[in-house]
Simulated scan of single mutants.
Amino acid sequence: MKFEIANYIEENIPIFHQRKLESLSKLKLKNILKRKNPYLFKAKNMNTAGELVQNILDAHLSSQEETIFGAFLENVAIHACQLAYGGIKSSAEGIDLEFNHDGNRYIVSIKSGPNWGNSSQIKRMCDNFRKAAIVLRQNKAIRNVVAVNGCCYGRDRAEDKGNYHKICGEAFWTLISGIPTLYTDIIEPIGYLAKERNEKFMEEYAKVTNRFTREFIDEFCFPDGSIDWHKIVQFNSAINITS
């Protein structure tokens, strides 16, 4: 089974890299500027166009990368559970995975790491667990439903959260696959051809950075080259803006 999971990862990791490239190619400087905090960058004393552009671009890409890779890891977890226990991708709202093991029906909401949400988001997850459990218990063959917030990496001090369990890292991968070493086994296939693919990404990243820097200088710098912070703040936050 380890071999099958490794093959799945090597076959599908190119999708992650391709989506990163696609995300990069679709970026527009002004769209990113609209979503970032201009006061923060001024407080960090950024005075060159290149430095500012690289910072806002990196912040944006880091957030997108987490989302794209989180979706990839979720698919790996579902595939591993399918091989081990016949797990399925759930159709219930907010639930990613369902499987039967040791007389329990597990319903799992998969997150990348343990520090993923605020109180409102956790409450919504609990509501989704409750609704899914009500539907499942209508099937008399299902006697015990266990709700799990599964995190692909990290630790949490207390697994039992009352109406659900938070299971992270090694314990999560063991739960869904029955393989105690899976959490370390997957690291090598995830790195399959990573060097070559990241070199391609960095080539495109350099082009985007240069293009954005030129655009930024044209749009948001004075003729002497200094940054027009008032114009940036107005573009980001003014009630009426023409561009």
Rank of each mutant, 00 (worst) to 15 (best):
K2P: 01
F3I: 10
I5K: 03
A6R: 01
E10D: 02
E10S: 08
Q18C: 12
Q18N: 12
R19E: 12
R19H: 07
L21D: 07
S23R: 10
L24N: 00
S25T: 10
S25N: 15
K26W: 06
L27C: 11
L29R: 09
N31S: 11
I32C: 04
L33F: 06
R35N: 05
K36N: 04
N37H: 09
N37S: 15
L40G: 10
K42L: 14
N45M: 09
N45R: 14
N45Q: 08
M46C: 04
N47D: 12
T48C: 03
G50F: 07
G50H: 03
E51N: 14
E51D: 14
L52C: 09
V53H: 01
I56H: 02
I56V: 09
H60I: 00
S63L: 08
E65L: 01
T67R: 15
F69C: 05
F72L: 15
F72P: 05
F72N: 06
L73K: 14
L73H: 13
N75Y: 01
H79W: 06
Q82H: 15
L83W: 06
Y85H: 12
I88N: 09
K89D: 00
A92F: 14
I95D: 04
I95R: 04
D96K: 07
D96I: 11
E98K: 08
N100R: 11
N100Y: 14
D102A: 14
G103M: 04
N104A: 02
R105H: 08
Y106N: 01
I107H: 03
S112H: 11
P114R: 15
Q121P: 02
R124C: 00
M125G: 01
C126H: 10
N128Q: 11
F129E: 04
F129V: 04
F129D: 02
K131Y: 11
K131S: 11
A132T: 13
V135H: 08
R137P: 00
Q138T: 04
V145R: 03
V145S: 05
V145K: 02
A147Q: 03
V148H: 02
N149G: 07
R157V: 08
D160Q: 13
K161Q: 15
K161W: 10
G162K: 08
G162T: 06
N163Y: 13
Y164C: 02
Y164W: 10
K166M: 15
I167D: 03
C168Q: 00
C168V: 03
E170Q: 13
A171T: 08
A171Y: 09
A171V: 06
W173S: 02
T174N: 14
S177G: 05
I179S: 00
I187N: 12
P189K: 07
P189A: 05
I190T: 09
G191H: 02
G191S: 05
L193P: 05
A194Q: 12
A194I: 04
E196M: 11
N198G: 02
E203N: 11
E204G: 06
E204Q: 13
N210Y: 09
R211A: 12
E215S: 12
F216H: 13
F216G: 00
F216A: 01
F216K: 12
I217E: 14
F220E: 01
F220N: 01
F220H: 07
C221K: 04
G225I: 06
G225V: 07
S226G: 05
W229D: 00
H230W: 07
K231E: 04
Q234N: 15
N236A: 15
A238P: 02
A238H: 03
I239M: 13
I241E: 08
T242H: 12
T242P: 03
S243M: 12
S243T: 15
